[in-house]
Structures are given as C-alpha cells and as structure tokens.
C-alpha cells in the first residue's frame, strides 16, 4: 500500500478563535437554553389559557419601570462586550479589560434592578400557578445573568493580567457569544412576563 500526504496541516492555524469548535459548542449550549426558555414560556401561555383570570383576581401585573430599565441596560452591556472584543482583535489589551469590566458592572446593575422588581411582585410563588411561573421564569433568567457575570469576571481577571492576545482570545469570543444570548433572551421574557398579562 502506498501512502500519500495530500493535506499538510503544519501551516494551518492552531487558534482560529472565531471559528473554533468551542464556538460551535457554546452555540449548542445556547440552543439548549433557548429550548428551555421556549418550554417555560409555552408553559406560561398554557397555564394562562387554562386559567379563569390571568393574573388571578386581585393581583396586579408586575410593574414596568424596573424591567424596562433592564431591557436597556443589558443591550448596553452587550455593546461594551462587543467593544471589548474589537479591542481584543486589535491587540489593545486595555480596551479589552475595560470593556469586559464595564459589562460586568452594567450587568450587576441590571441584577440590582431585577432584585428590586422581584421584591415588588404582587404575588408569591406558592399562592397561584401564575405566581409560580412568574417566579420560575424570573429566577431562571436571574441565574443566567449571575452565571454570565461570574464567568465574565474570570475573563476580566485574565484580561487585566494580560493573558489574552489576538490569537489566544477564544475565552473572550465564546464568553461574548454567551453574553449576547443572556442579554437577548430577556426580550421575549420581558414581553411575555410584563406585557402579555396586560394585553391578553
């Protein structure tokens, strides 16, 4: 048997942060979580359709002020993430470190708003199925913001220590991808939790 070398891998990139298998892996994680959100929101409508009144009589829909603020803060934090990534691509380490730190700060602010708003809910989780699903969806997204924050905090620590280079920045790229998801998925959650009970 004759053996031929038809592809030489010596010159191929070992980094490829924007097209790395891990990038695809994070996309898979995003798909799973999106499916979880879809299941939760479908359950919300299923329970709403079965209920006589939604929200139940005497319960106000959650206030709009705080969640609407979050709706703007989270995309803003995505913008700083994007800006950080631009810096990382160009090898500007300071821009990267500042950008991810700003994102962590903004998302923490969003958490504060979310916490105030949760404290203002007009119903507990154990009083009615409406309260249960409201708290569950809110808690689910809250957990995701927390995990995005702590994950990005680690990226920020590494960034300030100068670990990342334009080649070695896979961590930044995949963290950003996940961040966009956490910020983006708030839109359908916002529409369902805060507008659906007003419009249905």
């Amino acid at each position: 048997m004759e053996h031929r070398i038809e592809v030489d891998a010596a010159e191929l990139s070992r980094f490829a942060p924007h097209d790395h298998p891990l990038w695809w892996g994070i996309l898979g994680a995003v798909a799973i979580e999106a499916a979880v959100v879809a299941n939760l929101l479908t359950s919300y409508f299923y329970l709403a359709a079965q209920a006589e009144a939604w929200p139940p009589d005497g319960v106000d829909p959650p206030a709009l002020l705080w969640p609407t603020l979050v709706l703007f803060v989270l995309p803003l934090s995505s913008l700083t993430m994007w800006w950080a990534g631009k810096g990382s691509d160009a090898g500007r380490r300071r821009q990267l470190a500042l950008g991810v730190t700003a994102s962590v700060g903004l998302a923490s602010l969003a958490l504060v708003f979310r916490s105030i708003q949760i404290a203002e809910f007009d119903i507990r989780w154990d009083e009615h199925a409406y309260g249960s699903i409201l708290w569950a969806v809110t808690g689910f997204h809250y957990t995701h913001v927390v995990s995005a924050i702590v994950g990005t905090a680690v990226v920020a620590v590494l960034a300030w220590r100068g670990y990342f280079t334009p080649e070695r920045q896979l961590g930044v790229v995949v963290d950003t991808l996940y961040w966009y998801f956490v910020a983006g998925v708030f839109l359908p959650i916002y529409l369902v939790l805060y507008w659906a009970p007003r419009l249905l």
Partner: peptide
C-alpha cells in the same frame, strides 16, 4: 493507495478541523 494528513505535531494532542459542508481543512 491511501491518502493522509501530514504536519500534525506528535508532542501534543492535535486533530484537524474542517469546514461544515465540504470538509475543507481550515485549522487544527
């Protein structure tokens, strides 16, 4: 005849990465 990929290092774990549809090599 068997055709192969050359140029992967032997001192660390490397595998070739190809494009999704046509499997053209583009990274390691």
């Amino acid at each position: 005849v068997s055709a192969h990929v050359g140029g992967l290092r032997t001192d660390r774990r490397e595998t070739i990465v190809t494009t999704v549809l046509d499997a053209r090599p583009h990274a390691v």
